[in-house]
């Protein structure tokens, strides 16, 4: 019972030496407790989802969008897949057609936000150096703060550019109506199998940088088979944000949500 011992000051430590998520018999924790102090010791069932607080705030964000008839898309990708360039193309295409706001998640710099100015969209810059979780993703409280900088009554669509990362952003509902990701063909065919949580979370995948296909060994059919493994029926757009090829279908999708 070396895991469980009492110090002179009355504190008790239950040291956890588990490596494989193995359960102990609950009674084991009462060994060594002869102080009369543990008379009220009990195990309480909590059963609370650890994302519950985030999800409550995400629901509030979604309600704010809905109250103004605004649709919201959470756009995710690894760093450098082309989110910002796709957004530039998207804003240019939607100008005069829809009133668009952008929540720009960036680690410490306003560089991406500067690339998006002058395209007729409202921009809310969100540096992710602080907040629930720091730098690796946007969460619902962060997006709630960013929404204060947008006039939702004057918007039809909000595009949320998440932090470049294939892991953490997939875990956090921020109040969007649809999740989409930009995936560059330079990333290799196996990414859906390596990051299934992200590829499963999204409604649409924009397969980007197809202008580079002649210079790569990228096997598009294999990629699409891998994607289908983890997210059957997911919507796929094949684009080059650089040349603009294929972007119109993506733009029509976000405009029609």
């Amino acid at each position: 019972m070396g895991r469980f011992h009492r110090h002179d000051d009355g504190t008790v430590h239950a040291h956890d030496h588990d490596e494989g998520g193995h359960h102990h018999d609950p009674d084991e924790h009462d060994h060594g407790d002869h102080s009369g102090y543990g008379t009220g010791r009990q195990r309480l069932e909590v059963l609370e989802d650890i994302f519950a607080e985030n999800d409550r705030l995400a629901a509030a964000n979604r309600a704010a969008f809905d109250a103004h008839g605004v649709r919201a898309v959470n756009l995710m990708s690894s760093p450098g897949a082309g989110k910002t360039m796709l957004l530039q193309r998207t804003l240019a295409a939607l100008r005069g057609r829809l009133r668009v706001g952008v929540v720009e998640g960036d680690i410490e710099t306003p560089l991406d936000a500067e690339r998006l100015r002058g395209l007729g969209a409202q921009i809310a810059l969100l540096n992710t150096g602080q907040g629930f979780g720091g730098e690796c993703h946007l969460d619902a409280p962060m997006v709630a703060r960013a929404l204060r900088d947008l006039d939702l009554a004057a918007l039809d669509l909000v595009l949320i550019e998440n932090v470049g990362n294939l892991v953490c952003p997939a875990e956090f509902d921020v109040g969007e109506h649809r999740k989409a990701m930009v995936y560059a063909i330079t990333e290799g065919e196996d990414k859906p199998l390596k990051y299934p949580v992200m590829f499963r979370a999204v409604d649409a995948v924009v397969v980007n940088k197809l202008d580079l296909a002649p210079y790569l060994d990228f096997d598009l059919a294999l990629f699409r088979r891998n994607l289908e493994q983890v997210n059957p029926g997911v919507l796929v757009f094949e684009t080059s944000a650089r040349t603009g090829a294929g972007v119109a279908a993506w733009v029509d999708w976000v405009a029609g949500l």
């Binding site: 239950a14 609950p26 924790h29 102090y37 543990g38 009220g40 010791r41 009990q42 195990r43 309480l44 069932e45 909590v46 059963l47 609370e48 989802d49 650890i50 994302f51």
Partner: peptide
């Protein structure tokens, strides 16, 4: 991903 139980005094 949830908190299942807590042991309290």
């Amino acid at each position: 991903f949830r908190v299942c139980t807590i042991d309290v005094d």
